[in-house]
Structures are given as structure tokens and as C-alpha cells.
Design a protein around this nucleic acid. Structure first.
Length: 158
DNA sequence: GCCAACGTTGGC
DNA sequence: GCCAACGTTGGC
């Protein structure tokens, strides 16, 4: 069994927030709509059940990490790519050769306070964190154990 | 295979 | 709303 991996998943809260995940009747949410090949590859090839997820809110008044989730499914084809009514519809994707993949996640813990992006930028442990890099647009990025521990420690100290 | 144009992301 | 950075597209 592979060692546990860590990820940061980014979402616009107006679109899908951590509270939306908490409110899922089934207790789990689909991480669908990823339409970037690099992020797709992370999801499809590198995630495992049990991996940790930092849930990040972007494009909002206060961006930052709002809570922890975990991956609860293997990667499987994202059904929204075949749905003409979905904003994430991809007419070029084929049923027998899906282009886009997703995983399911479940909320583990909501921080009492958001760990703001501005604060993360001040943390020496996070200088190499991908999500903090200028121009980063990936909605799924790997996180090191060191970064994972630092984020959680800092978030719980607020 | 190059590269300009365009659309999108996302912080501020 | 602005703008920088990036990915994708399509003409050649």
C-alpha cells in the first residue's frame, strides 16, 4: 500500500464551498469539472483512497484554506463531460475513451477560522507550495507532508 | 512545429 | 474592474 499523499483542491465558494461539501446528504461530494490536463493527471494517476485534501477557496473576498477533506474513491470518469447541459460538457470526449476524471471526497474537519492566503504567504514552510506560485491555475495540486503539517498547525493556532 | 490570438483564472 | 500569467486553439 502506497504512503498517504496530500493534495490541495481549489474551488470558488460561489460554485462549490466547503459548506456545500458538509451539506452533502451522502456525506461525500464529486470533485467534477476539472478541465486541465495536468490537474486531470494528478486526479487520475496519483490519488488514492485515504489521501488528505486541503480545501481552498479562491476568487472570493478572503481566499485561503477552510478545512480538511479526504479522498474516498478511486478516480473514475467525470460524468459531466458527457452532459450537454453541464457547463463542463466536452463534446470531443468519448464514452469509451473519457478525457476527464474525478474523485469523491468527504469532509473531515472545518477549521474554526480560515487560514488566509495572505498568512500562508508569510509562512516559511510554504515558500515552495505550488498553489502560492505566481500564476498558478491548477485546481488540484500535490502538497508535501511538511506543507500539510504546517498548514494544519497554523490553521489551528488562529 | 511555431506562435499570435484568445479565453480563463484568480489575486488585488 | 484591472491585469498578469497561463492553457488552448488554429493558421501557416
Amino acid at each position: 500500500m502506497a504512503a498517504r499523499s496530500y493534495w490541495l483542491f481549489k474551488s470558488e465558494p460561489d460554485c462549490y464551498s466547503f459548506d456545500d461539501l458538509l451539506n452533502e446528504p451522502s456525506g461525500r461530494g464529486h470533485w467534477d469539472g476539472v478541465r486541465n490536463y495536468q490537474a486531470r493527471n494528478f486526479l487520475r494517476d496519483r490519488t488514492s483512497i485515504g489521501d488528505g485534501v486541503l480545501f481552498y477557496h479562491s476568487s472570493c473576498p478572503e481566499p485561503g484554506v477552510v478545512g480538511i477533506a479526504k479522498i474516498v474513491s478511486e478516480a473514475y470518469p467525470d460524468h459531466t463531460q458527457f452532459d450537454p447541459n453541464s457547463e463542463a460538457y466536452d463534446p470531443k470526449s468519448k464514452q469509451d475513451d473519457p478525457r476527464w476524471w474525478m474523485v469523491d471526497i468527504a469532509a473531515e474537519e472545518k477549521f474554526l477560522k480560515i487560514l488566509p492566503l495572505a498568512r500562508m504567504r508569510q509562512m516559511p514552510e510554504l515558500v515552495s507550495m505550488i498553489v502560492l506560485r505566481k500564476g498558478n491555475m491548477l485546481s488540484v495540486t500535490p502538497v508535501t507532508k511538511k506543507e500539510w503539517d504546517a498548514v494544519i498547525r497554523e490553521a489551528k493556532s488562529l
